[in-house]
Computed example of a mutant assay.
Amino acid sequence: MNPRRVILSAELYQELARVNGMPVKEEAQLQKALKHSLYGIALLGEEEEAIGMGRVVGDGRYTFMIADLIMHPEYANAEHTLAVLNDLMAYIEASGADGAEITLMSDVPSIPLYQKQGFAYTYPNKISLSRTL
């Protein structure tokens, strides 16, 4: 398989969210959210099938969050995840200022993969909190 990178679209986002059991987003709101992303990428297979996606949100200089790094269950593997992550990191490294902080939220099984890429637990120096509307 020779995956191809494309700009993340609402259609690709919805498709990958749906196959992962995530709630479908309201289209106008999703379009606005993606428009306000700093960067977004999707990985497509040879038959144009969605393999994975990810996006970067933040202030573009000092604060970056890798968001929505989602893989299609049929194609979920370290190689594809790293292809998306490395693309997002290349954007951040080209844009970020010295001392910029990059955060991400991970499912538990993926933690070792991210740790191998230099990500570390924020605890005990910091702790992440979350709230959903």
Rank of each mutant, 00 (worst) to 15 (best):
residue 46 E to G: 06
residue 30 L to V: 01
residue 59 D to G: 00
residue 30 L to T: 02
residue 16 L to T: 04
residue 115 Q to L: 00
residue 67 A to C: 12
residue 127 I to M: 14
residue 37 S to D: 02
residue 50 A to I: 04
residue 33 A to L: 04
residue 132 T to H: 09
residue 38 L to P: 06
residue 70 I to A: 04
residue 88 L to I: 08
residue 97 A to W: 05
residue 64 F to W: 01
residue 113 L to F: 06
residue 2 N to E: 15
residue 25 K to I: 07
residue 120 A to L: 11
residue 3 P to I: 11
residue 1 M to Q: 12
residue 91 Y to D: 09
residue 58 G to I: 02
residue 91 Y to H: 11
residue 39 Y to P: 05
residue 81 T to K: 10
residue 109 P to H: 03
residue 19 V to Q: 09
residue 54 G to A: 03
residue 27 E to C: 01
residue 17 A to S: 15
residue 21 G to A: 08
residue 79 E to T: 14
residue 92 I to N: 03
residue 54 G to V: 04
residue 18 R to I: 04
residue 32 K to V: 02
residue 22 M to D: 12
residue 127 I to G: 13
residue 106 S to P: 05
residue 2 N to W: 08
residue 4 R to V: 09
residue 66 I to Q: 05
residue 83 A to H: 14
residue 20 N to W: 11
residue 12 L to Y: 08
residue 113 L to T: 08
residue 59 D to K: 00
residue 75 Y to T: 10
residue 51 I to A: 09
residue 90 A to D: 13
residue 11 E to L: 04
residue 111 I to N: 01
residue 128 S to G: 12
residue 64 F to C: 06
residue 71 M to Q: 11
residue 101 E to W: 09
residue 87 D to V: 09
residue 18 R to K: 10
residue 2 N to L: 10
residue 131 R to V: 05
residue 89 M to C: 07
residue 26 E to L: 01
residue 49 E to W: 06
residue 44 L to Q: 12
residue 17 A to R: 15
